[in-house]
Amino acid sequence: MSESSQVYEKDAILQDLIQIIDGLIGDWEIGFSGKLGPNTLLVSDLGLESIDVVGFIVAIEEHYQRQDLPFAKLVMVDNRYVEDMSLGELADFLHRHLNK
């Protein structure tokens, strides 16, 4: 687990995310055969539903031991709920906020 004073590199965050999502979808039998990477889309590629996004966020919060990450800013843009996001976008978001 990471400490709060730690500096988080974007590549390391992406690897964390890949590891977390791989652990989640491994049980889902969704038949995803591609390679997880920054361009992997949560909804289109991995078939996450809204409740799965919630579960993914909980897993991320658990990993970094934080519950104060402003995910609202990620999932709401111009007061509209985003329809999809990539692991790279998520890594960018975490890189900005974990290092604040």
Binding site: V54, I57, D68, P70, F71, A72, K73, V75, M76
Partner: peptide, 9 residues
């Protein structure tokens, strides 16, 4: 969160 609200289970 800041000026936003996030609803969670």
């Amino acid at each position: 969160q800041d000026d936003r609200v996030f609803i969670k289970l």
